[in-house]
Design a protein around this nucleic acid. Structure first.
Length: 497
DNA sequence: ATGTCC
């Protein structure tokens, strides 16, 4: 039986995979059209993850596709083990949304939008590369403050020193990540140890990347908020989120940049060496699925490194939002902005699953706690559920959703976007540059790119409507607002040849 | 995702 034949559909929206008589099957979220997008390797990765030691549940989301060890677009739960691969190479890659008090009409004029693009690009660099690409009005963070950000995340002190409104920390899924022993001191010691071992060449250059987007699928996007409907539930959620219908908002997607990459790769390498040295069998024979039992020095080290990367990503996002707000204020003096939410889709968190604590690894998956969830008790979202930020593509729009009680079936998780349909190489080979650029022009969506990267064109992503239909039919979440793109900030250097 | 080949 081939891997894809192992999918058993149990309804319009969910399917299961048999993975052995005694285990809970994999939960698959997706309409039939979506399930057909899962290729054999993606399914095989899900099965390997499900059969891996200590794993009690795996959820495959509609945006799933092949990843490092585990599919991007999956949730893996373990009460006893931690898995670096199912967090991924970009630790705490996340979404954030800034609501501005600007009516949509004020940015209708293309010249205003062009000025905004320039003002934002002067502050927030895009692209990979050594350190932050030089930008005229970026913010330089020195070594001492960089260390403080890595160790304590978006603390009051860090926010104040970086010009981040401290109240934004309350609008974070997690504003700070602690060490394995729940202290920040151990994180500081771990960071010192890593630097002593020279695990961070060019540390200061990596710190300079605070406030930058990076490349690949990372982006900043100016949106107009369009509430889904005027039903009381939608209005209550929109109100709690601080969303304003018909007004401008700014959506950001980025992660922990070079430092998270260095931390993740270092962990993969070290654990793979230990598995080889000790002759431990690899789950599904895949070295990308190495793991560590909780309580072991290896697990402690991974949790610490993940937290360091996660704190960088958090401060990076908040600084980007502060810089974007500053750019808006330069072009449209007097405007104000407030953070709707900052939420990750590449992180492992300790949560309660089936009444006991477990590490929930979300790899290209978004936490989805509904109204009344115990973990939201002391947050602004206790009565509504927190905002779920899902990038679709600039032409289909992006979505703000909120979880329903049905999200329990997916370990309180949803997808993290549309998911890739075409591989990058194939997209570059098959898509016509002129057609891609003209499609943006026709939709009146401006970009900072001279040429929009073909491997990031909307056509390279799955049908966003079908993905959202999968989420709603499975009764995981409902849409609160659609975000309509007005301009995109992205690394366009690859398409420039 | 990534100092995308030190």
């Amino acid at each position: 039986m081939s891997a894809s034949e192992a999918i058993i559909a149990t309804g319009e929206a969910t399917g299961i995979l048999p993975t052995g008589a005694s285990r809970t099957p994999i939960t698959v979220i997706g309409t039939q059209a979506i399930r057909e997008t899962f290729d054999d390797l993606c399914i095989q990765q899900a099965i390997n993850s499900r059969n891996a030691p200590g794993v009690t549940q795996v959820v495959l989301n509609p945006d799933a596709h092949c990843g490092y060890g585990a599919p991007i677009g999956c949730v893996m739960v373990s009460p006893s083990h931690i898995y670096p691969g199912p967090v991924g190479v970009d630790i705490k890659c996340s979404m954030s949304l800034l609501q501005l008090d600007i009516p949509a009409e004020e940015i209708e004029d293309r010249r205003v939008r062009r000025a905004l693009i320039d003002a934002i690009c002067e502050r927030t660099p895009t692209g990979a590369g050594r350190g932050a690409r030089h930008v005229a009005k970026g913010r330089v963070v020195d070594e001492r403050l960089g260390v403080e950000a890595l160790v304590s995340g978006a603390s009051l002190s860090v926010c104040q020193q970086m010009g981040i409104p401290p109240e934004w920390a309350e609008r974070c899924e997690d504003s700070a990540h602690l060490a394995h022993d729940h202290t920040a001191d151990s994180l500081a010691m771990r960071l010192e140890e890593l630097r002593f071992r020279n695990a961070f060449p060019n540390f200061c250059q990596k710190i300079h990347q605070l406030g930058s987007y990076g490349g690949g699928n990372h982006f900043g996007e100016c949106e107009v908020v369009e509430l889904r409907d005027r039903e009381p539930d939608t209005l209550q959620a929109a109100n709690a989120f601080g969303l304003r219908d018909g007004h401008v908002a700014f959506l950001s997607h980025c992660g922990s940049r070079g430092i998270g990459h260095q931390l993740a790769m270092g962990q993969f390498r070290e654990l793979q060496c230990k598995f080889a040295e000790w002759g431990i069998p690899l789950p599904g024979g895949d070295r990308e699925l190495v793991y560590a039992p909780l309580g072991s020095p290896e697990a402690d080290a991974y949790i610490d490194d993940m937290s360091l990367g996660a704190n960088f990503a958090t401060v990076n996002h908040l600084m980007i939002n502060a810089l974007v707000l500053e750019a808006f204020q330069e072009v449209l003096p007097g405007c104000t902005g407030s953070l709707v939410y900052f939420i990750s889709h590449n992180i492992a968190r300790k949560e309660i699953v089936d009444h006991r604590p477990a590490w929930v690894h979300r790899k290209g998956a978004t936490r989805a706690f509904p109204a009344g969830h115990h973990a939201l008790a002391d947050t602004p979202f206790a009565e509504t559920g927190h905002p779920i930020l899902l990038p679709g593509n600039p032409q289909a729009g992006s979505s703000v959703m909120v979880a329903t009680q049905g999200a329990e079936k997916s370990c309180y998780s949803v997808n993290h976007g549309a998911g890739r349909r075409l591989g990058r190489k194939r997209a570059i080979r098959e898509l016509d540059q002129k057609a891609v650029d003209q499609s943006f022009d026709a939709a009146d969506i401006l970009t900072n790119c001279r040429q929009y990267p073909r491997d990031e064109a909307p056509a390279t992503y799955k049908d966003f409507e079908e993905v959202l239909r999968s989420v709603e039919k499975a009764d995981l979440a409902r849409e609160v607002a659609r975000l309509r793109a007005k301009f995109v900030i992205k690394d366009g250097s690859a398409a420039d040849d």
